[in-house]
Design a binder for these strands. Structure first.
Length: 492
RNA sequence: GGCGGCAUAGCCAAGUGGUAAGGCAGAGGUCUGCAAAACCUUUAUCCCCCAGUUCGAAUCUGGGUGCCGCCUCCA
């Protein structure tokens, strides 16, 4: 299994530190607004990583934090005259629902910054005690970047260049830099006096800096060294760089062995972002496209390359998904699925128990799948995924399989290959639910009216045999028809 | 300015030394009372430009052009 590591800018063989257990932490959302496609991409990329690692048999501890301390949350709360907690709870909830609607596996742990204040303060105190941090004349606490000689190793930045860059650029921060020993030092604790959302600390009322929460929660939830740390590419600098600095200064241990970063969703080759206002929310998207469609659209691209958002791209993905859904119809409806493959969508956390390779293999052995094709398929699928999660190739194998199903002359082969397709689509998180015959309520109303109209046509033709048949049939569906001057109906 | 990335058919996109995956659109066909859907077949002598290394390059090296991201909150 090769994974591209941002730390070394190269693909490396992945092995967890401790046997079979993978400790994985992903930077989650700051909950102050609805999420957009870009957040969905982050969710989907790490969803695939968790799914596939579990498929390989790893015991993955998937932790994704919720940032519920942030100036933007405070600002929104003031605008709406609500508390920060109300705002963050609302949007954390919305995010969780959206991620579920996208059929992503839920994190095992979802720590919130507000639950780790004491630990953050202790963390900062230790950094001060070891001279990696200092209290400025304003009372704010800063991390002293120059005490960490490896500062810049993740983002490949040279500390001197950062210093010159900062001097030229951050003119608006002149005020601030007077209190910092170095312009690149970042805040660990900021004192402030907005009543609503401040916490007491040895340095006075205030809020923790953004970077300290992840270092602290990783330490307390997962440990001092984790296997995988992930997030969006824009977090590399300064956020992840700063996490490394804080944690490694304190623990003298590597914070994360593999750093995985996903690229962005672009709109007309410009980054989709809140600040540019060119975003489409996940909810809007889910109104027009299924989770499978969105998933295909995202996963057809390499996760380290930008995806260009376009309605035509999504429509293409929608049609493509149809082909897989149609091929699945070849499955014998009488098949008995093993427990681990049964849909358990109504159970909470159903998707945490993902089938492993060996479970799938055991089941496939009971079927009579032509070994030449079936085994090649699995090998090629895994070869693709083992190469830094090359979902584009893995998906193309799904379409190859679909072609095999359609062109195979033998019914049993068709059925078995369709089972193979369904299982491996599931490994990639596709549901392949056939939604083509889902009748929306408004259409149901139109249908009843159409049948009443046709029945009235029979009645006016004095074809009472047919009109009675329709009335009885409708009644058996629970729809009572009443003929007066005008025919009416109601649900009985 | 520094660092990083990208440039492949009409469109999206994988491939990073051995002769171009996959999806959409297009073309032809099967099916069909008509229509639609579905399915099948087919579609790049070539991978931004120039020079070089090599038996062999889209893939490596050097140079150039264009686009994007990070360096400031952002997945």
């Amino acid at each position: 299994m090769q994974i591209y590591n941002t730390l070394t800018n190269s693909k490396e063989e992945f092995k967890p530190l401790n046997n079979n257990t993978v400790l994985m932490y992903v930077c989650g959302p700051t909950v102050y607004d609805l999420s957009h496609l870009g957040h969905a991409r982050m969710g989907l990329v790490f969803d695939i990583i968790v799914r596939y690692l579990r498929y390989l048999g790893y015991n993955v501890n998937y932790t994704r934090n919720i940032t519920d301390i942030d100036g933007k949350i405070v600002q929104k709360a003031m605008e709406l005259k609500l508390t920060s907690e109300q705002i963050s709870r609302y949007y954390a909830n919305a995010f969780s629902k959206e991620m579920q609607a996208l059929n992503t596996v839920s994190p095992d742990l979802e720590p919130k910054a507000t639950d780790y204040l004491a630990q953050m303060i202790a963390f900062i105190e230790e950094l001060i005690a070891t001279n990696h941090a200092y209290v400025s004349s304003t009372g704010d606490v800063y991390f002293s970047c120059q005490t960490f000689k490896e500062y810049g190793k993740l983002a490949k930045k040279n500390i001197n260049e950062l210093l010159t860059g900062a001097r030229e650029q951050v003119r608006s921060q002149d005020e601030l830099s007077k209190y910092k020993r170095s312009p690149i030092d970042f805040a660990l604790w900021k004192v402030c006096d907005i009543h609503e959302t401040v916490w007491p600390s040895p340095w006075g009322l205030g809020r923790p800096g953004w970077n300290i929460e992840c270092s602290t929660m990783i330490k307390h939830v997962l440990g001092e060294t984790i296997d995988i740390h992930g997030g969006g590419e824009d977090l590399i600098f300064p956020h992840h760089e700063n996490e490394i600095a804080q944690s490694e200064c304190l623990h003298h241990k590597q914070l994360a062995r593999f750093w995985i970063h996903n690229n962005f969703v672009n709109v007309k080759s410009q980054k989709m972002s809140k600040s540019l206002g060119n975003f489409t929310t996940i909810n809007e998207l889910l109104g027009s496209y299924s989770s499978d469609t969105i998933r295909l659209f995202v996963l057809q691209n390499n996760y380290r390359h930008p995806v260009d958002f376009s309605p035509s791209g999504l429509s293409a993905a929608k049609l493509a998904i149809n082909r897989l859904v149609n091929s699945i119809q070849a499955i014998d409806p009488g098949i008995t699925w093993p427990d681990f493959l049964k849909p358990k969508i109504n159970e909470p956390n159903y998707n945490k128990f993902l089938p492993t390779k060996s479970q799938i293999q055991e089941f496939l052995n009971t079927l009579n799948i032509p070994t030449d094709f079936g085994q090649n398929f699995q090998l090629e699928f895994e070869e693709a995924m083992n190469n830094d999660f090359n979902t584009a190739i893995a998906i193309s194998k799904l379409f190859n399989l679909s072609d095999q199903i359609q062109t195979s002359p033998d019914l049993k082969t068709k059925q078995n290959l369709a089972i193979l397709l369904k299982i491996y689509a599931q490994v990639l998180g596709f549901t392949l639910v056939d939604e083509s015959q889902k009748v929306p309520p408004s259409t149901a109303l139109d249908l009843v009216n159409l049948i009443i109209e046709l029945r009235n046509l029979s009645r006016s033709n004095k074809d009472f045999k047919q009109s009675d048949y329709i009335r009885d049939k409708l009644l058996s569906f629970g729809i009572e028809v009443m003929d007066s001057a005008k025919t009416t109906w109601k649900i009985k």
